[in-house]
Design a protein around this nucleic acid. Structure first.
Lengths: 237, 237
DNA sequence: AAGTGGTCTAGACCACATT
DNA sequence: ATGTGGTCTAGACCACTTC
């Protein structure tokens, strides 16, 4: 394990345990260098993780201070900006899928753009409703190039596609770009999600990348409005 | 200007201009060291900015590669994870506020928690509807401690409060934690936003911090569903 | 085996705030 | 004036691919 991650975790724990108290000054970086037997750069890296997470703030010439956060806020910070599929997100609950469509088609125009594919490429066209504890929470439509993600079977899309990609194909999912917006549910969406027509839904359009840099997924998720929220930490510069 | 930012910008421009092409390998870091007359650490920092933005990917032992992105995606990346007020966000449009409430009250319980204040603190209680090009797009309710942000007048909340805080009070806004969710508009919200009751609205709950680490703002924004979207880059580790 | 990026160090110099 | 955190260097060693 990386030294700066270990140090970062250690400091975070001390904040969570109340060993470093809100608005209190943390030890100076040069003291942390001694304490953790590390160089300045390593300590800075460790501390900057916590700055990015929003737990602490630094002031040049003055020191580093614990932010004035309530426990809920801290809890959220730990969850924010993580990239998890539905199965992993609700790992303590029962997740299953109702499959609405599973076929192979030539890539539709919008998806071709997002996936940066030529128009004549074959992709999976998957549409499924994800149930959590027997309640429908999201409709997922996704396109994936068959060349990149070969061998998907119906049983895979009943469970976690991400698990199939990572554990069976041994590919590494690296990141995703997501756009969240809001609109009214269409008739058929409402029916699948157990909503009334015109009820709110959250739309998450996502483009996913492997660690090879290849775009492997373009998906649109339609979420029940009462089962959706997303956390962010924004910074000014 | 910091060297690694200059280098990062330079490389980004070369990608945008097509000088480095999708799926192509970037020069090795040791070559970039020579080219930019920098050390390994500085180059790594510069390149890692672009990795975080999602423009490129790195593979140890193999090299650094430009991601296979379409132009729209690249455009979005530049916008993502920025922290801007409504006025700055719509800087090319006409923004004004209709003030629904502007008073000073003892802090309500929920806001006290979020702002980490004791129950008997005075805060501004501001509620305004923001119009962009004469169309209502968002209702903002916000609480700010009067001690931290003194001297707000009605004219300030008609315009940009963030501008007042930064330009007149010379305080620095550092970051914010935001939670986005979705629900149906209440009767009164619908009226202010020109919607029907029960139409979708996006709710953004936000806690804002100064660079001193002080929590200066707890706000809840109720957005018209057709005028709301948010971008994110998620990473797996 | 050679070459990549990743981590870490010890120390220089700078910008900024005041312990 | 002193001490903080911020940037940068030159070089060591490690983990991973195969240029």
């Amino acid at each position: 394990m990386k030294k700066y991650v270990i140090i970062s975790n250690d400091i975070r724990n001390k904040i969570l345990k109340g060993e470093y108290i809100a608005n209190q000054r943390l030890p100076f970086e040069k003291d942390l260098c001694v304490q953790y037997e590390s160089s300045k750069m390593t300590i800075k890296k460790a501390v900057d993780i916590l700055v990015t997470e929003g737990l602490i703030i630094k002031r040049r010439g003055s020191g580093t201070f614990v932010k004035d956060l309530n426990p809920e806020e801290i809890e959220r910070i730990a969850m924010a900006n993580q990239f998890r599929g539905t199965t992993a997100l609700y790992s303590d609950k029962k997740v299953f899928s109702k499959i609405l469509n599973f076929s192979i088609v030539t890539v539709p125009e919008q998806a071709a753009k997002k996936l940066n594919l030529s128009e004549d490429t074959f992709v999976y066209d998957i549409c499924r409703v994800r149930y959590v504890d027997d309640k429908p929470v999201v409709i997922e439509k996704m396109y994936m190039p068959i060349d990149l993600i070969p061998g998907i079977k119906e049983k895979n899309i009943k469970g976690s596609i991400y698990e199939y990609i990572e554990n069976e194909l041994h590919l590494k999912i690296q990141s995703a770009h997501r756009t969240v917006s809001v609109r009214k549910a269409t008739d058929s969406e409402a029916e699948e999600l157990g909503l009334e027509e015109g009820d709110p839904v959250a739309i998450a359009e996502q483009v996913g990348y492997l660690d090879t840099g290849n775009t492997f997924e373009f998906s649109t998720s339609i979420h029940r409005y009462d089962e959706f929220s997303v956390e962010m930490v924004l910074t000014r510069d």
